[in-house]
Structure formats: C-alpha cells, structure tokens
Design a protein around this nucleic acid. Structure first.
Lengths: 194, 194, 194, 194
DNA sequence: GATGAATGAGATTTCATTCAT
DNA sequence: AATGAATGAAATCTCATTCAT
C-alpha cells in the first residue's frame, strides 16, 4: 500500500493539463502517464478506461466551476446582482485557472456523450435559470422572457468570450477582463431588466 | 462513366450527414463511403485524405451560413436592423438545414485546428463586428462598447440557443423559434443600443 | 480487388496448422498472419476477431470430419457394419489429416464456448446415436442400452486413442492403426450386440 | 497470524472452484484471490507463479482421483471385477465432487503441457493397463488385445460420459448414474472378456 | 473513374509479477 | 504473514492510406 488518493489526484491533475493542452481526442493514455510521471498501467489501476478518465476529468473541472457559480446563487442581493456575480466569477476563472477554462471551452461543450450523461452544462444552465426566474418573481426581470432562453443567452455570451481568450483572439489582460465583465453585465444582464 | 462533380457532391453531402450524426472524430471513411453508396477508394479519389474531407465539409457548410450572414450585412437599414436580420437568418437555419447547424454547433465552433486553419468562425465574427462598428458610426450603438466583444456576445448567445435545439433541451417548434428571435433581438441587440 | 476467397482459404489453412501446432490459447494473430504470409490486418479483413477465426477453423475442420462420418450413416449394411465404418473413418483420419485430428483432440473437446455454440461434437454424437437406435430397431443391438450413452462410449474410446497418437503415447504405424480398428470394433461395437 | 497451511489450502480450494467454473486460461490471479477472500499478493506468497498454482491444483485433484483408482487395483477379485470397480469409482465421483470432475474433464485431459509435465492421466492409464494385463495372465481377458489400447478405450468411454454430465447433455440423476455404470461395465468391460 | 483488397503503424487494454510497507 | 499499489511487456483490434486491377 502506498499513497492511494494522492496518486489518483496526481494522475487526474496531469490529465487536466494534457487535455487542456492538446484536446481529449488527441491525448493518449501514455501522454497522461508521462505527464503524471507514473507507469502506464497505473492509470488503468485508478481509472478503468480511457472514457472513465475523461469523465472523471470533466466532472472534476466542472465541479469547481459549478461550485463557484453555486455561491453566486446563494449570495445576498437581487437577481441582476447575482447574475453580475456569475459573470465576474466565470470570466475571472480564465485568469485563475486557465487549464480548466481551456478544457471546458474546447471539449465539454462539443461532447455529445457528456452532454447526455454528465450534463454539467445542464446544471450550470439550470442555476442561471433559477436566478432569472427568481428575478421575475421579485420584479427585477421582465416576465415576458423565457428563463431557459435567457440562461442560454448569458451562458453562450460568456463562453464565447472565454473562447476568444483561449484561442488568443481577444485581448485578455486584467483591464480587458474587467471591461468584458462590465460590458456583458450592461448588455446582456441589462437587456433582461424590466 | 464521367460524372465527376456529381460524385464529389454526393460524397460531400453524405459526409455532412454522417458528421452531423456522430461527430467528426467518430466518423470513419468507410461510414462516409457507405452513406454515399460508393466504394471505399473513391472517397480518396476525390479527396486526398481524411482531413481534406473534413475541411471541405466545413468550408462548404460554413459557406452557406456565411453567405446568408453576408446578405444581412449588405441589406438596407440601420445596424440594429441588420443585427436583427442576422438573428433571424441564423435561428431559422435550424429549421431549414438542421444537419448543417448540428455540424457547426458540434464540431466547427471550438475546434482548435479549424479555428486556426479555416477560421470561418472568425469570418462570421468579423462580419458582426463590422455591423456593430457601423452602428457606432451611425450613432445607433453605444460607442463605449468593444465591437469584437459585442460580436462574440451575440454569436455565443445564438450558438447556445442552437445547441439547446440540437440537443433537444429547448422547444423548437415554429412558435418557439419566433419567440427566440424576438427575445434575442430585444435582449442582446437591445442591450447594445445607445 | 484481388483473389478474395483464395486469400481467405489461405489464412484459414494457416490457422489450422498453427492451432494444431501450439494450441488455440497460445496462438497469436501475428502467428497466423506470418504462417499465411500476409499482413497483420488482412486477418481482420476476412475474420472480424480472434474468436471468429477460432470458430471458423473449428467449423471447417469439423465439417470435414462430420461429412466423413455422415457417409457412414448413409452407407448400406447393418448398424454394426456402419459403426465399424465410423471407426475406420475416424481412426484413419489420423494418417490422412493429422493437423485436423490434432486440433480436434487438443482444442475442440475442451472449449466450453464451442461445446455450447458450435456444438459439432453434438452433431457427431447425434449421428452415432441414430445409427445405434437403428440397430435396436433392426434387432442387431441390445434394446436395453441407451443410445446416447452408447454414442458417448464409442466416441470417447475413439477420441482417446487419437489422443494417444497425437501425444505420441501409442504406436501409430499402419499396422497399429489397423489393429486399433479391429480391437475397437470387436470390443466396443461387439459389446453392444444382442 | 501464522496459519500457513490453512491459508494455502484455502487458496487451493478456491482455485479448484474457479478453474472448474471458467477454465484455466480464463482465470486470473485476482479471481482466485477474490474467491479465496485473500489479498492479491498472498497467492504469490504461497505459490510462486500462475503456472505453479495450476500444477498444484491439477496434482491435487488428480491425487484424489488416482488414489481412488489405486484402491481398485489393490482390491480383491478378478480383473473384470476390478475394472467394474474403477467404473463405479470414476462415475460416482461426479456426484461426490463435481468441481474436481469438471476440472479434469475440461482442462486436464488433453492439455499438452500437463500431459508432458505432470502426466497424471498417464498414471491413471498405466493403472488400467496393469489391471488388463493381469486379467490376461489370469485368463479372464482376451490375450489378443493390447492392454494400452484397452486402457484408453475404457478411459475414453468414462471421460466422455462425465463430459456429457458436466455439459448437461446427459441425465445425471442417481438412477442414470447407476445405469451408466451397468452399461459401461457390460459393454466395454464385457467386450474385453475371453 | 471506380473498386475493395492489402498494409502496418499505433492505440487501448490486460494481467502476471514485483515490491515497499 | 499479509496487503495491494506499481510496473510494463505483450496482445488485440482499428482504420487511414495505398495500390493493383
């Protein structure tokens, strides 16, 4: 017996880095093992198969993101203030944990299996939906809107900005990040108000 | 028999269907050949390699979409009216040509290689950017906004709604499509106005 | 297009030789490909999987044997004469086609999957059973006997003698083969008579 | 804790069960450890290798069978009576210890390596041979027969009946077992008599 | 142009065995 | 004695690509 959970974490962290670097489809088990500095078979000792690693990695990265978004839902303040907080949290993740964002942007959205089986995107959207519906009840958001549609508009806008950063198509210095926060809040969140 | 261009189109159309159905990575040359009803080697006769097929397919599908978005840029009217037209064109594509939309949503949008080499998404974003900048010049859109950021917000919002339809997460009957057009226009386009 | 069926036969014949030589479990696909003098992947082109090759080989080898035993069932003469013919055919197979006998003796009997799915042993036993039952009707074989049990006794006796030859435990020169025919006929077939 | 021999027996008994269930080739060390309820490495502590376990198991199971057949050779009575006793002992083993019989039928009988290295089948056949030769000396068995051949005929007949039971192809209730004893004795043993 | 047989590099996965604790 | 984490060689299988006809 050695250091079980540690090893597992070590491999998982390596997988996040490699997936973020080259994408899931282009990543070989040997890449992960090499990055983690362990033997080939140990990856299989902790994760049963290639797909299992992918699922674990996605669950893990999304877990962090969802937890953060969850705090916004629990925060004090009106619905628009909560949405503003979501915008801040999501966009700042790029600076705080770029590998996770890279992974989410590049892989999670496109994976049919994930969309069906893990559906963490769905969880994020559901959180946004609840916040919007709360805003309609408290009278801060137009009741003519469909919360599910609003959730997708905001989510899509945020994801596309992250994509711009990931692909180096948009400036991502600290000032640009603050500006993006401001503009998304004014435009999309502002567009929802009564 | 010498029906060259026809055969090529036949294979390309089959590739669109298969890619839309199962994704690019999961699609084998044999799947395309089978769907097209031609022999294995003929796919290689017209397209030199697997990647060449992918590029041709993506260029082709995006070609149609970009052409449509281009007509909006050329249309008469103010910038907000042009953006509204883009919204209409993009969202109605789902009803008109779902396989193409499926393909774009699942594969094109965030594929790193494509973004680099074909960068047709970039072309679409550039069109939106030009419309927004035009609106700022004509005084209909707030000048404090960054056109590149606006383009991405609108693009992302649209794409995420299409994703909802592709994955069956949002209702997509004719009435729902009209409603989505209205809400995106009011919320995101409306949020850009002075 | 090249010479399809020929290639398939070529691989199948190679597989028979290799299986007979080293046994199924110890045989690698690469062994078969090398013995057949073809590329690795071609084995998979004609047979879908390792198990499929095994099944095809067993079906093929047993096919030849069963066909031979079938002729005995069709032959003129009394049941004991037919059984004597079966004894002759089976024991002479060792001289005529040792690889096939080796394979049957070493592999077929022990394979649970085969016993269940291909069950060619079952077909051979059924033929013997029918001959014995016919003998009971014509009054040449004791009616107190269970034909299924008789079939197994004769089959087992023959197989065990073949095993002795395959493993080099019994002399197998022409004279020894003739003697074995005589003794099995006198002892086991003779033991069944009224 | 120092219950060495007990542990060893525990693992050996588990191996017999697992081998009988799924065959030697399909059995993993982990299967044996799990069935025995001990840790992975402990199997290696008591047995040095996978092959060593197999050999130990086969020696063990055959040991019991050979011991039983040996008592027949030592028994009072004529050679035919001794052979009748062998038939009884072998066929009744199915009811008494089916896992052992299953193992012998499926794995031991024709395994080339075993036949060469352990050759316990050879020992059983030798015992039968000695009984037959004794019968020829005492004048109860035809002297024209080759004892080695007779031994194989009887052995094969018995084994094939056991196979029928193992595979569920023959009825194996108490009455059917008694009948099989009677018929083998009359047919094969009877066929040897002067 | 058209076919599909042939090739082989490379990926996933298994599992006997070792070894530190 | 007992545990199970760690290792890596070896096997199966896939599939893009080539090529003879």
């Amino acid at each position: 017996m050695t250091n079980g959970p540690d090893r597992r974490e070590q491999i998982l962290a390596a997988a996040v880095r490699v997936f973020a670097e080259r994408g899931f489809e282009a990543t070989r088990i040997s890449d992960i093992a090499a990055e983690a500095g362990v033997a080939y078979g140990l990856v299989y000792h902790y994760f049963g198969s290639r797909d299992a690693i992918r699922d674990a990695v996605f669950r893990e990265t999304w877990g962090r993101m969802l937890e953060a978004v969850g705090t916004a839902e629990q925060s004090a303040g009106s619905a628009p203030e909560r949405l503003e907080l979501v915008v801040k949290i999501v966009l700042r993740a790029w600076r705080d944990d770029p590998d996770v964002v890279r992974l989410i942007v590049r892989e999670v959205a496109r994976s049919p299996r994930l969309a069906d089986e893990l559906d963490q995107v769905g969880a994020a959207l559901a959180t946004l939906e609840r916040i919007v519906a709360g805003g309609q009840r408290e009278g801060t958001i137009r009741t003519s809107l469909d919360p599910a549609l609003c959730a997708r508009m905001l989510y899509g806008a945020l994801e596309e900005i992250l994509t711009g950063w990931v692909l180096g198509r948009l400036p991502d210095d600290a000032e640009a990040v603050r500006r993006a926060e401001r503009e998304v809040t004014r435009t999309v969140v502002g567009g929802l108000l009564v």
